[in-house]
Every structure is written in C-alpha cells, then in structure tokens.
Amino acid sequence: MRLEQYAQISNYAMVAATCVLALAFVAHVAEWAFARKVVSDEKELVTSGPTPPAPPVEDEAPVTERFSRVGVTLTILAATLLVASVITRGLAAERVPLGNMYEFGLVGVAVALLTYLALVWKYQVQWAGGVVAAFGLVMLGMSLSTYVPAGPLVPALDSYWFEIHVSAVMLAGAFFLVGAAASVLYLIRARAEAKGNVGAVLRRLPAAAVMDKLAYRVNAMAFPLWTFGALIAGPIWAHYAWGRYWGWDPKEVWAFITWVVYAGYLHARATAGWKGRRAAIFCLIGFVTFLFSYYGVNLFGSGLHSYAK
C-alpha cells in the first residue's frame, strides 16, 4: 500500500472517529435528558391525583442505563478509529506521529479516550462520559483546524527522548482530564446536596465525596507522569535538540506552572486536609494551566516549541 493511501485512511478514520464521538456525546446527553423526564413524570403523578394505572417509574431506569451503555460503546468505537488513524498516519509519515499540533491532538484524544475507558472498567466512571466526549470533540476540532499533510520530522524532534517526553505528558493529561471532569461534576452534585435538592438526574452521579476522592486519585496518578514527562524527559530531549536542559521557553514556563499548581493541590490535600470545593477549584485551575501549556502556548506564543504549529 502506498504512503498516500495510508494518509487517506488516516484522514477518513479521523473524521469517522469525530462523528462517532459526537454520537457518543449525544447518547450521554440523552441519558441525562431522559433522567430529567423521569423527574417530571414523578412530579406529575404526585400532583395530578388519582390516575389510571401507569408503568412504574422503575421501568424507566433501564432506558437511561441503555443510553449510558450506548455512549460508552460508541466511545470504544471512536477510540478504536482514532487508534487506527494514529497507526496509519504513522505509516504514511514513516515515523511516530507526534510532529505537529494535528498529530498531538490526534494522539492526545486517543490516549484520553483509552484512559477514560480503562477507568470505566476499573472505577465505573461512565458518568463522566459526556464531559470526556465533549472535551475530545473540542480537541479534535482544534486539531482539524491545524491539519498538515504527513511528512518528515524537523531535526529538533528526531529523538526517542522526544517520543518518551510527549507520551508521558499525554498520559498525564488524560488523567488530568478525568480529574477535571470529576471536579466539575463534584461541584454540581455538592451544591445540590447542600440544598437538599438531589433529583433523579444528579442521583445518577456518585455522591460528591466519592467524586472528590476520585479526582484526588487520578491527579495523584497523573502528577508523577507529568513530573517525568515535562521536567525530566523534556529537558533531556531539549539538551539533545538545542544543547541546553532548560531555557525558560514559554512552553517550559507553562509546563512548570502546571507542575507547581498540581503539586500545590496534592500538598494541600495531603497536609492541610483540603477537600471539597476548594480542592475542586484548585484542580480546575491546574487543568486550565495544562491546557494552556498544551495548546495555548503553541497558538498564541512563540519560542523553540513553535515548530508544533
């Protein structure tokens, strides 16, 4: 098969994965919308007085579960298509596909979806599927906007330390994403619990304390990966590429800022007992710094890392 054919297959798989992930997002939205409908039906039954026998509300619950399973199944399919796109992109370029922002986004979303699915299997976090799918769609859209044809690497990237650096950073970012999703949903659920108004929609989420604990766990897993990828493997690669380990390039500065924020988050939880709302907000600040270091610097900044544009 010719290189051009591999490139075409990669592009088709990327578009198909985006469409399937959009359907997964719709399935998760339908899951929450149907749960809201169940709430409305319950209220109507209470306020309308005696009515002819109706199907019990319990019969409705499996429908929301089916939407949830459909969303997860479609996410599996989207992840499979993205992996196929990554592999064929690598075959087309005859290298590891990590040479520009399009490829970063393609591989990054694939890693994020696979990490999410692994956590679904381990911790049953399918309730975060809507947030993960939405984030994946945004990142894929940004990647498509920076598409470039497959080609050779620039000399600065032609190092296995670069591949180790980016792989570790992307895996850390996937965990950061799940931690951010858990923190967002924690804030919503905790507010409802404080008001004593946890309806059927929010009852589909775990208790606020459970999501708070999960956010801490996944961020604790991500932090050593980020430390290794951004502050150890990255400087080693920089030494081979540019003859110095650290030069306060904008990308390096923001990678360090992200490390400091997450280090502060973990330290505050472990020593000061920070939990709940303060910890969730701290986590989300960290995720914003990660996103800016991952994409914002390339889009709005300049420096040695501008090759990725």
Results as ranks from 00 to 15, higher is better:
Trp121Ala: 15
Met101Thr: 05
Leu117Ile: 04
Glu103Arg: 01
Ala134Ile: 03
Gly108Leu: 07
Thr115Pro: 03
Met101Lys: 06
Glu103Ile: 02
Val120Ser: 02
Gly130Trp: 11
Gly130Ser: 10
Phe104Trp: 15
Met101Asn: 04
Glu103Ala: 05
Leu137Ser: 09
Gln124Met: 11
Val131Arg: 03
Ala110Tyr: 07
Val132Ile: 15
Ala110Cys: 13
Leu119Pro: 08
Ala133Gly: 12
Trp121Gly: 09
Ala134Gly: 14
Ala110Pro: 11
Trp127Glu: 11
Val120Tyr: 06
Tyr102Arg: 03
Gly129Ala: 07
Trp121Thr: 14
Trp121Tyr: 08
Gly130Cys: 04
Ala118Leu: 13
Ala128Ile: 03
Trp127His: 15
Gly105Asp: 08
Ala110Phe: 07
Ala112His: 01
Leu137Ala: 02
Leu137Asp: 12
Lys122Val: 09
Gly130Arg: 10
Leu114His: 06
Gly130Val: 10
Tyr123Phe: 14
Gly108Tyr: 07
Gly105Thr: 07
Val132Thr: 10
Ala134Trp: 04
Val131Leu: 13
Ala118Thr: 08
Ala133His: 11
Leu117Asp: 03
Gln126Lys: 05
Gly136Ala: 07
Phe104Asn: 11
Ala128Thr: 15
Val131Trp: 08
Val109Ala: 10
Glu103Leu: 02
Val131Pro: 02
Val111Asn: 00
Met101Trp: 07
Val107Ser: 01
Gly105Val: 01
Leu117Pro: 07
Ala118Met: 12
Phe104Lys: 09
Gln126His: 10
Val125Trp: 05
Ala128Ser: 14
Glu103Thr: 02
Thr115Trp: 03
Tyr116Gly: 12
Met101Ser: 12
Val131Cys: 11
Trp127Pro: 01
Leu119Arg: 08
Thr115Leu: 08
Ala134Asp: 00
Val111Glu: 00
Val138Gly: 06
Phe135Arg: 04
Met101Val: 01
Val111Tyr: 00
Phe104Cys: 05
Gly129Asn: 09
Leu113Gln: 09
Phe104His: 15
Leu114Arg: 03
Thr115Gly: 09
Ala133Glu: 10
Val131Gln: 04
Ala133Arg: 05
Leu119Met: 14
Val131Thr: 13
Val138Tyr: 15
Leu114Phe: 15
Ala134Met: 11
Val107Lys: 00
Val138Leu: 15
Val109Asn: 11
Thr115Val: 11
Ala128His: 13
Ala118Lys: 06
Val109Arg: 00
Gly129His: 09
Gly108Ser: 11
Leu106Arg: 05
Tyr123Arg: 15
